[in-house]
Design a protein around this nucleic acid. Structure first.
Lengths: 234, 234
DNA sequence: TGCGATATTATGTGCATACATAATCATGAA
DNA sequence: TTCATGATTATGTATGCACATAATATCGCA
């Protein structure tokens, strides 16, 4: 019933142990054999078993404690690696031609909730950008973005016709960390007009705030046209 | 500017190198020093550097190729680890009391789209369950679930008053893999009544299909009450 | 010059060993 | 009995070494 009888590679052993766990050899929360025991079973060194078990712990399959041993994780909480898609790639990989139109671009005071999410004072001016993303000429998503010109001084003169603001920022300020929320909103009049849908339509929405070393970079609110799904595997 | 000057532990070195990458010491796509070079710089063994760089590669910060060396990843695509919350924990961690009411429970043929998502023929009977999840007595989310009684024969007689179907299934069929989609839907009449909102309201919705070793376990469509946000960090 | 064989090189991996660290268990004194 | 102390034990981690593997560079020959 083993998935495959591999050589004594660390991920061969990882898969072997995973199969035994999934196969129900041990109950949830139960202690599984120690590294030395596995090493003997698979005739490999303890280091190799260690790497295998560490990988399983990293995945959340098992929990390990010094001296406490390794046990099957009691409640297997589903988790997934979610890739935030780049809109252009998303559209193109669906076989459609991508384009975008900048509807608005100006320097202004942000609304209170935006300033709050970016951890900025109310009187801090930001660059406000509205972009309509199109797939095959049809509205795909509408984006409202605020950028902090203090953190990204070059943004104000950036040429955003060839490359979208999102990709421009990723290129200029990589390795920024951030927070994101997913939610559903009803289309207001402006959104309805932009996306060519009826007011009140349910729109899948993603908000993102990103920082680079404690300095706010950008906040975006992205509304997808109806029918959009964000898929991932768990 | 170093995060911290640790000893020569593999994750000390990992963070040191990460800081140098983030600090812009090398351009995007540029080759960074080899393992031997880093080992010399930090006076540790090549194995230790190897682990550190492998971790960074796993994170997507760098790309490694045998003989090709290690280079900073050209386009840093944002990705996140999304934890699918368990509703009870979600409600309780917000300080509210959780409860649920089973509104419906019967064996029936599923709608075509459900059968399709579970990779089942149209004439395969499933257990259909409708549950209202409440936070502090108020509707929090409404769930329609289909369970395959062939894969999970015990489910039909499961006592779902103390424990929710979701947690029951996680306990009985752990380690199942699956797919999920996030989307926005407008409340139909039934949803509006269940969640006590106006028809047409935008509802954040999660669909999940899970399998255990090629056998379908369950498909759920979960509609959250308005105002819900799924938060995560990137 | 063109091309295939060979050498070189950077990462990938396994192993034996040594020591570190944290939690538990056993011991013994108050 | 209770509590402090030290022994025990399982995992965590670093190291030197050997060899595997893949991609590139180089060389030699036609």
């Amino acid at each position: 019933m083993n998935i495959a009888a591999q050589a004594t590679t660390h991920h061969g052993i990882r898969e072997a142990i995973r199969a035994r766990i999934v196969g129900g050899e041990w109950d949830l929360g139960e202690l599984i054999p120690g590294e030395a025991e596995f090493a003997a079973q698979y005739s490999c060194s303890r280091s190799t078993v260690n790497r295998a078990l560490q990988a399983l712990a990293h995945e959340g399959i098992v929990e390990r404690k010094r001296k406490g041993g390794t046990r099957v994780r009691p409640l297997q909480l589903p988790q997934a690696r979610l890739r935030i898609p780049i809109i252009r790639e998303e559209v193109q990989s669906a076989g459609q031609t991508y384009s975008h139109r900048i509807m608005r671009r100006e320097r202004q005071l942000p609304p209170g909730d935006v300033a709050q999410r970016m951890h900025l004072p109310d009187d801090h001016e930001l660059i406000h950008l509205q972009t309509l993303h199109l797939a095959g000429g049809e509205p795909f998503a509408f984006e409202r973005r605020w950028v902090d010109p203090v953190t990204v001084p070059d943004f104000e003169e950036a040429d955003l016709t060839a490359i979208s603001a999102n990709e421009w920022l990723i290129r200029m300020v990589p390795f920024s960390r951030g927070e994101a929320s997913l939610l559903a909103v009803s289309a207001d009049a402006e959104l309805a007009q932009m996306l060519k849908v009826a007011p009140g339509e349910a729109l899948f929405t993603m908000e993102r705030t990103t920082w680079f070393e404690e300095r706010s970079v950008t906040f975006t609110r992205l509304h997808y046209a109806p029918g959009y799904r964000l898929n991932f595997s768990l």
